[in-house]
Design a protein around this nucleic acid. Sequence first.
DNA 1: TTGTAAGCGTTATCAT
DNA 2: ATGATAACGCTTACAA
Lengths: 343, 343
Amino acid sequence: MPKGSATIYQVAQHAGVSIATVSRVQRGNGPVAADTRARVARSIKSLDYRPSPNARSLAASRHDASGIVFPDLSGPYYSEVIYGFERETVEARNSVLILGTHGRERADDLVHDLAARVDGLVIMGRTVPDRLVAELGRMKVPVVLLARPAVDGADTVLAENRNSAVDLVRHLFGHGLDDLLFVGDPDASPDAAERWAGFLDAHRLTGRPRPAPPLVSDFTEGGGHAAVRGRLSAGLDGRGLPAGLVCANDEIALGALRAARDLGIQVPDQLAITGWDDIPVAALVSPTLTTVRQPMRELGSIAAVLLAERISAGRVEPRHVLLPTSLVLRASCGCQALGGEIS
Amino acid sequence: MPKGSATIYQVAQHAGVSIATVSRVQRGNGPVAADTRARVARSIKSLDYRPSPNARSLAASRHDASGIVFPDLSGPYYSEVIYGFERETVEARNSVLILGTHGRERADDLVHDLAARVDGLVIMGRTVPDRLVAELGRMKVPVVLLARPAVDGADTVLAENRNSAVDLVRHLFGHGLDDLLFVGDPDASPDAAERWAGFLDAHRLTGRPRPAPPLVSDFTEGGGHAAVRGRLSAGLDGRGLPAGLVCANDEIALGALRAARDLGIQVPDQLAITGWDDIPVAALVSPTLTTVRQPMRELGSIAAVLLAERISAGRVEPRHVLLPTSLVLRASCGCQALGGEIS
DNA sequence: TTGTAAGCGTTATCAT
DNA sequence: ATGATAACGCTTACAA
């Protein structure tokens, strides 16, 4: 019982056959006589033989593993996507490597290293520059882009943003809320950019004047709180309050909610607030949060499936999957707390 | 430019040296003449050579990777721990493999496979049976147990539970709340078991009678909501309401909060509720949640450090790290919403 | 049906 | 200081 389990040689010897036969039995492919198979199988079991994934990768130049790159694991969005990806990937008998770039400088090298250890990669959002994505494409590394526009010949999977934003904003208009402020940073993520674009569309389509520029905030509760609090207190000091805040995600909206509470502003009576994602707590805060649900786990699992198609089925033409979202009407926009759901 | 980058042979040829020399230069270890080194380095750069992790693992029998096993990625707790682990591990130039067991039957095999791909493993909670942990120990696979009592010679890292529970419960007693109900499942996790033990301790230490058995719930908001709602409506029907609910984690507490809201029960006036973990939303719900903060990311990063000690420094005597927690007093226990923090 | 042997891309041990 | 060359544990033609 030295470190590691038995090797193929030990099994071969134990069963009195060659390593080729052991390999055949183990992988269940080549032709093997029934009795030989049984004998070898017994040896495998009794020695508890498990082929070394490394040696196998080296010989077969496959890894049976895939990787996912994310900017930061913070917040429900990333962890849910990763959850979906992990689940689907393991289900397909592959291992999962994760890499958070965390805005590191070495990110480039880290991604290359990751790429060398897997059969394919899912890349979330703007974690890596287009240049690198193209480079991976040239190296024939299967790549699926998640929540990011197409680059090169890579697959993409994203949730619908722009039309959903239009629907959301028109719903707010329907509440008689005209003066809306978008909170988020369109320059920071493709998702935010699309939501902002839909926000603009809705104004244009309904013949309204162009709205104020976005109130810039990162995707965190803290960021949302700070930005919104600043804007609202300026509003209280005479600049005037917007009628509603359309936040680029739920966490920003949560921060906005807290800012409003800090300042004694009633939501939704004095100020409507909406989010995006429908993270679990959106239904738990008070007032409950009107938001746009996107299927986070499914984003991850579908990315895994696309990757598998490329790797195993050898697909090469890029596929682009667009997942539908649904408007979740709750209390924070002025709807009844019971609020139904519109897809 | 075939699939994958250049091999060591191509670099050797390009630089006019043997592969051994390339290896030396690449790894920066063996003795190499300055000019040779420079020439080889140039070749490496110009061919964009990156050693194959697989071949390297096979030859050196190291993986430069470590793995983490969790039961389910749902909820902030697991994702935060994994975040801390990933960050620290990548910082140390290692890759990270994750595996969710999701209560699968094949979990055993999956863990073995994972073990074959990494230099060491972090195992969270009760994801795998003691038998398997012991088996890994026998195979000399470095193992760090997280939020789980020691097994074999494995390291452990856990946050203090029992005393913290005593402090929390005594704090509730101080509010004049005597009839407390524990919500959670001590049989389902070591953490829950310890918190329940502390809950009992507090009663004993203060000369109170033994409290009612736990109201069983899994660690989810939904589970907490269902269990608590059932108990509270029974209470409303005459059985009587407890004075406070000590929940095994924040998500259960959130469910309890919702159940109380459903039934029109005022928190904390009619019913106090406390959680555990201090997940981000605990500060955002209304009333804000009194809870026990445990350093989730740090649990992950410390596990990574312990693992690294075993792997690189070759430590072999088990280490056991106990992380302190802190009581976070907010509104749901009856404290002022401003609530300070006691460590 | 089974075995032999040539890789796969490194590291590491000897020689030189 | 450098180069051969034998592992590492497997897959996979190719032979037998």
